[in-house]
Design a protein around this nucleic acid. Structure first.
Lengths: 333, 333
DNA sequence: CCTGGGGATTAAAACGTTTCCACAGCGCGA
DNA sequence: TCGCGCTGTGGAAACGTTTTAATCCCCAGG
């Protein structure tokens, strides 16, 4: 409980508190001899700077917020790893928020972040209401969208083209000869799910099929468990020849349920997922999927955010859009 | 950038800043009429409390730190989900730190947490040096160990019995008739890896085998990629009849490498992992594993920590030790 | 009518830093 | 020798909140 402050350090080193602050923040401005004395005092007393006091006075913190939809999904985990790496390199702390797909929870998390006066926020928004994010900006908190296109021009965003992804996926399935298709999706409040569906329909149209014939099964969450349930619904109404899932977790669940009930993949049903998480390649029947530069998404978004924070004058807002890449495996052989 | 402070609210509501602070922190202490007026002013101005100022004055924050070894490992992800849920229920923010197995990085993270004056820290330590954690305690920061037994009596810890787990695992493999065994482990600086090995040796001794005959392959990280590499080493010196991996990621990697080189699991080699992550059941050959109450680990540890912070006088330190549970699947059929 | 007590509110100090301004000392050119 | 500018340091105010002690007001009891 030995609360040692900058004053104690100053006293021990025989300088003023202002000087200690200088060696902490602009070591160049202080004479080498003094600096050494201060540094000695710091380590002798085991001083650690009080971040809150610093934030209060300086008006900004060295903390960023990260709000994701499902921390249990390897996709977001990998994004988080990228974020954490960059943040930690630059001495920033990351406050993690898991919205679990609920905008209420997301709002609560954003509120916490606002109270903490984080420097900026990285967010994969759960809903489509830009107003909440604008409120953050009014408080001087930069926002970078992750895996989501920009809401406005004066904002950075790093996304992956989900329409193209959905289109490529379904084109691949059609190429395997499938004519009846189902799309197993998460909540259609999630943009990614909607856009992948649009892409899917475009692919059908492109192949001369009626896009309305796409059977859509909407799961409550994007988890393997929900995928198993969705497979039940699918089977109840007669299995299609191909199933496209909005992410790999759903696909893994569908796969498990199909195999358990004796349906062969890909012989009876061709199946693919999305995200290309590590486990897609390792599953019972290895899973065809759409690969996204996940870790890079996190890294780049963080670099953009921190650049916006640290160099507000030279910073140029960027809208980055990656293209996903199809990885074909056994499930669509 | 409209920095609206408690004073602005006070002015608008026609009360003093102290009263506003009271409606924020002890609404019961203020007359209903006044409270309403203040609340109206708060929402009219869009006031959000400055957490740093609050922390500075109050001497403690509503933030906890979470330091894990590998955020990419579903085991820790699930722990983190449990932590996040409890923290968010109680209005705490979580600062995430990923040590990536490096004590240096862990130290840096702990330093950041100390600067933030977090209320407490949940940590799965990378190394075995309790001194660094004691330093946190000297700063008044409570520490709860996660998936690690307590260093000292006046400390909470939530762990799983890794010796028992290792023993049960290898007993199971021996029960399948295997007589030559290998243990594919992560760095032996990680306690879990060491204890699972000890358990494994105990099982061998118990079966009348020489524990020294256990072939130990130490991988640099506990990832699937490292597992693939380890399988190479294993094969180079002649495959054993059974392989026990220190976690499922390693096991998945070993499995992939074995199958690719034409080795059949479980016919040629029986294989098992540890943690029972979701994907263990979904893999090519479904994986036998040791299940741990992962999400609960996170929840309980957080509840313990927050109880220690919020009720320091009535709080009783607890050392909780769960028993892992064997889940048999195809890989050891 | 006076006194006392209790609830509601206020005023002011304090938390630990950062930052702005002033000032001291020094070297250098005039 | 004087003055100027430059560098390094000190002093003090300020950041937004919480908290303690003090004050105010009102009402009940005597």
């Amino acid at each position: 409980m030995a609360m040692v402050s900058i004053k104690d350090v100053a006293a021990l080193a025989g300088v003023s508190p202002g000087t200690v602050s200088n060696v902490l923040n602009r070591p160049g401005k202080v004479a080498p001899a003094t600096r050494e004395r201060v540094e000695a005092a710091i380590s002798e007393l085991g001083f650690v700077r009080h971040g809150s006091a610093s934030t209060l006075r300086a008006g900004h913190s060295r903390t960023i917020g990260l709000s994701v939809i499902d921390i249990g999904n390897p996709f977001f985990t990998e994004v988080a790893a990228g974020v954490e790496d960059v943040a930690s390199e630059l001495g920033y702390a990351v406050i993690l928020g898991n919205s679990a797909g609920s905008t209420d929870k997301e709002d609560r998390n954003l509120r916490v972040l606002a109270e903490h006066r984080v420097r900026g926020v990285l967010i994969t928004p759960s809903g489509e209401d830009p107003a909440r994010l604008d409120r953050l900006r009014e408080h001087g908190i930069s926002v970078v969208l992750v895996d989501h296109p920009a809401h406005r021009p004066d904002q950075c965003a790093v996304a992956v083209d989900d329409v193209a992804g959905g289109r490529a996926a379904v084109a691949h399935l059609l190429g395997k000869g499938a004519r009846s298709l189902a799309y197993v999706t998460g909540p259609l409040t999630i943009r990614q799910c909607v856009e992948r569906r649009e892409g899917a329909k475009m692919a059908m149209t492109g192949a001369g099929l009626d896009p309305a014939a796409l059977r859509v099964v909407e799961a409550a969450t994007m988890t393997a468990k929900a995928g198993e349930k969705a497979a039940g619904e699918l089977a109840a109404a007669g299995l299609p020849e191909a199933v496209f899932c909005a992410n790999d977790l759903l696909a893994l669940g569908v796969l498990r349920a199909l195999l358990r009930s004796g349906v062969r993949v890909p012989e009876d049903v061709v199946l693919m997922g999305y995200d290309d998480i590590d486990f897609a390649a390792a599953s019972t029947v290895s899973l065809t999927s759409m690969r996204q530069p996940t870790y890079q998404l996190g890294r780049i978004a963080t670099e953009l955010l921190l650049d916006e924070c640290d160099n507000p004058d030279t910073h140029a807002h960027q809208h980055i859009m990656f293209q996903p890449e199809l990885v074909a495996r056994e499930s669509t052989q």
